[in-house]
């Protein structure tokens, strides 16, 4: 997995990516196969599982990268791009 834009955030980023990927790899194929009647229950259970497993490392990583983006002047560019975006 690639590095973070800020070297001091790379170790947190790698931990977060590993957590997400491990969760995602267990999530995706059952999510495709689940019958439509059970879809909402599956999605809710897996969303909670993701928060439980990765929420803490995500919080630390996000705080680190937000600070670094602020320092590099990137936050403002991102805010502007979000405003201009039509795709979400």
């Amino acid at each position: 997995m690639a590095q973070s834009l800020a070297p001091e955030c790379t170790s947190l980023k790698l931990k977060y990516d590993a957590c997400f990927n491990s969760w995602f790899e267990g999530y995706l194929e059952p999510a495709v196969a689940v019958p439509s009647t059970d879809r909402a229950a599956y999605a809710r259970a897996k969303a909670e599982e993701y928060d439980r497993k990765c929420g803490a490392v995500w919080g630390s990583y996000r705080a680190c990268v937000e600070k670094a983006m602020e320092e590099k002047g990137l936050s403002e560019l991102v805010v502007r791009a979000r405003e201009a975006s039509t795709s979400g």
């Binding site: 997995m1 690639a2 590095q3 973070s4 834009l5 955030c9 980023k13 977060y16 990516d17 997400f20 995602f24 999510a31 879809r39 909402a40 599956y42 999605a43 809710r44 897996k46 969303a47 909670e48 993701y50 995500w58 990583y61 996000r62 990268v65 937000e66 983006m69 990137l74 991102v78 979400g88």
Partner: peptide
Amino acid sequence: VMSVDVVDRSVDPQTGIIRTERI
């Protein structure tokens, strides 16, 4: 490609759609 960062991510508890914003 030198760096990849996730700056926002959500798992929709209704639809199961995952939205990710990366830089």
